[in-house]
Design a protein around this nucleic acid. Sequence first.
DNA 1: GTCAACAATCGTGTATACAAGAATTGCGCT
DNA 2: AGCGCAATTCTTGTATACACGATTGTTGAC
Lengths: 216, 216
Amino acid sequence: MSENAGRWLRDEIENSILSNEFSPGERLDEMVLATRFGVSRTPVREALMQLDAIGLIEIRPRRGAIVIDPGPHRVYEMFEVMAELEGLAGSLAARRLDKASREAIAATHSRCEQSAAAGDSDAYYYDNEEFHKAIYAAGRSEFLEEQCLQLHRRLRPYRRLQLRVRNRLSTSFSEHCAIVDAIFAGDGDEARRLLRTHVGIQGERFSDLVASMAAR
Amino acid sequence: MSENAGRWLRDEIENSILSNEFSPGERLDEMVLATRFGVSRTPVREALMQLDAIGLIEIRPRRGAIVIDPGPHRVYEMFEVMAELEGLAGSLAARRLDKASREAIAATHSRCEQSAAAGDSDAYYYDNEEFHKAIYAAGRSEFLEEQCLQLHRRLRPYRRLQLRVRNRLSTSFSEHCAIVDAIFAGDGDEARRLLRTHVGIQGERFSDLVASMAAR
DNA sequence: GTCAACAATCGTGTATACAAGAATTGCGCT
DNA sequence: AGCGCAATTCTTGTATACACGATTGTTGAC
């Protein structure tokens, strides 16, 4: 447990929400959470306030906290913003690429190649995440990196769903290749464009996501 | 006072920070805030946790909360992201513009024209804000709109500083004109491009900002 | 039988008390 | 006199108690 019960609880509850242990719309009872995690209501409340500020739950005055249910349309909007931010990160990365970032991108990219070749979608899910994080970091904008990481966390479950779609794994990897090429070539505009379409969920990719969401 | 002391305090303290009543780096003593606002420490702590989640303050475990000091470089990074988000909002607005949004943009735009003509930089500051908010709303993406509003709030003090720079007021308004034209013409790419450069603080605009920040 | 009003219960919002870790100050030592 | 260590004090972190509003269940009337 972290040195601070409030922070620890925030992460704990956040993970429970993102891993769908608490269903969207579910009411989070402070007392239940408190006994479950073996603390008093005070740190639980602090954790809930933070999750509310992040946007994962909604606290209705005097009526408790409920897990926010981002419907397909809202998830689409979130991916739309994510695509924009990643595009910016990519374009900055292409312009500012240094040796360390280049190696980080190359390393995570080759790990993606391996898990894609093995058809291991769980491994690819993880490696893909590291690949994108490497790009965020390569942009050399701390604020942008933080924003990307935060939004990435919220979209993580849906990114995972997406990978289960047929052929998505190999398609994703070939898109990665083009992205890496553009960044390494210093072509910021191209990197931006490629990342936007890679991350965005236009057309059938959106239908796939909706289908996956409905399937749960 | 809002029905909820925690929310109320959050807004209250947030305003105090943004209006520079609490200086960056300053330590926020829970007991002092509690007595000042006539409440106990509990709601104060809840407000502080939320401000920490938003990124306005930093709570160091067992060492209290301090107001975050975004140096010029970080402010630049924040404007960079803001420019990207506003660009997206503008491009969506151009594509999805409906009657109500069109009227809202036209109305706020003409109010900007009046205050710009009058050389009233305080009035322009307010009208300009409404103009940009009209564009966020016209994008018809609730999530994007929320993100834009949140970042806008954090950058508000700096936007104000910028307007004090010589000629900035009329330059800003003529940029607005071009933006409105692009959006009304349905030219999403152009609206995006114009908004990016309008909001971003490249080159001398950045130096101006740094100078203004240092002047305080 | 259904609807409405009232009462009881449950859960949140706030205050206060207590515990534990940092900061600070004073004392002793070199 | 300066530095280091220790004790005290101050502040944060957590628990608990109390108050108020919301929800729900029951009873009575139409």
